[in-house]
């Protein structure tokens, strides 16, 4: 079209405006994004990806900033994605995480991007993995993604990160609550932040005990879990224990390294599933107009299950499910 270099070329050239714009394309579902991603595919897979999740106010943003600062002292470059919720009513969002990352703003080895969840409920946005890919191709050594952080387990971050760090702090619940909320299930590393506050030691002991209960081999079985999430205490505000957190993340990465490719492939397959499901959803309920058809069925007296069965009876034979297994699939 024009003689100017393509956006992917500019990205691979290290232009930050190209990086920022490609993330926007991913967020907006821009039709040009998939082919741009294809052009930078060779450069993917080098960055280490860490997810930071946990309840509101636990110190995720403050800790993210500290982790980045410490990583920078070892000359590592760091890309940060901070996800905040979109209003389900207006679609608007106030993105404020980067206020706590101010000292990294003009650091040329850092890049911080705020992202609204835009209707996703798994703690990250639909485009978060794409944005991480773009940052990865740009060449950052370390990527950190801070989830929305509602206090429930945000399972999508497991698919986006190699290592998930769950941040808790005294006063925001105990070990049992962490178990109930599912936060322990997603944790590769457990951090008790605000170790400068009373109750931090207790919480750390409590969590260690909960982890032990969760990972202890069941009666009569000898299987030992391959990875037991360590509990690490720190104070992000006072810059204490940050290197211990980094060490725990590094340990988990070392544990993964034998099968990092396999580990990531499983996660990547999950992303594929999301993309396919999203397209199908749009195709069925949007383009193909099944919404109106279903409304008529229900108005005519069908129960939800009858209407659903009728839709599936129409749609499922149309999906070449049996053939798909044997067919040669394009690589992703």
């Amino acid at each position: 079209m024009s003689a100017s270099p393509s956006i992917s070329t500019r990205l691979l050239d290290g232009q930050r405006t190209a990086l920022a714009r490609l993330i926007s394309w991913a967020e907006n579902g821009d039709a040009r994004f998939p082919s741009a991603l294809l052009e930078i595919k060779q450069r993917l897979g080098r960055a280490a990806r860490t997810g930071i999740t946990g309840p509101p106010g636990a110190g995720k943003s403050t800790l993210t900033n500290e982790l980045a600062r410490h990583l920078r002292t070892t000359e590592k470059t760091v890309g940060i994605l901070a996800v905040d919720p979109s209003s389900p009513i207006t679609g608007g969002a106030l993105l404020g995480d980067r206020i706590r990352m101010e000292d990294r703003t003009t650091d040329p080895g850092c890049f911080i991007r705020s992202m609204a969840s835009r209707g996703s409920h798994g703690g990250i946005a639909r485009a978060t993995v794409d944005a991480l890919d773009v940052m990865d191709a740009f060449g950052f050594d370390e990527l950190i993604v801070e989830t929305v952080g509602v206090g429930q387990a945000e399972y999508d971050v497991v698919g986006a990160a190699d290592t998930v760090v769950v941040v808790l702090c005294p006063g925001a619940g105990d070990g049992v609550q962490a178990m109930k909320s599912g936060l322990l299930e997603v944790a590769d590393v457990l951090v008790v932040n605000k170790s400068d506050m009373p109750g931090a030691d207790r919480l750390a002991k409590d969590l260690a005990e909960s982890v032990h209960i969760r990972t202890a081999p069941a009666m009569g079985k000898s299987a030992v879990p391959a990875w037991v999430p360590p509990v690490v205490s720190c104070s992000a505000a006072k810059d204490e224990g940050i290197d211990d957190v980094l060490a725990a993340i590094a340990q988990h990465r070392a544990f993964l390294i034998d099968d990092l490719a396999g580990h990531r492939a499983i996660k990547r397959a999950n992303q594929v599933r999301h993309v396919v499901t999203e397209h199908l959803d749009e195709a069925i309920w949007g383009t193909a107009g099944w919404t109106d058809w279903v409304a008529d069925e229900v108005r005519g007296g069908s129960t939800a299950y009858e209407a659903a069965a009728a839709v599936l009876a129409h749609l499922v034979p149309a999906l070449p499910m049996a053939g798909a297994h044997g067919a040669k699939e394009p690589s992703v």
């Binding site: 207006t90 993105l95 980067r98 206020i99 101010e102 003009t106």
Partner: peptide
Amino acid sequence: GMEVIYTGLHKTPDMIAEIALQED
């Protein structure tokens, strides 16, 4: 319905422009 990045007080012109860039 807009996505608003709020940065807090006392920003230098340099920081403001850099944030605008990163956030596109």
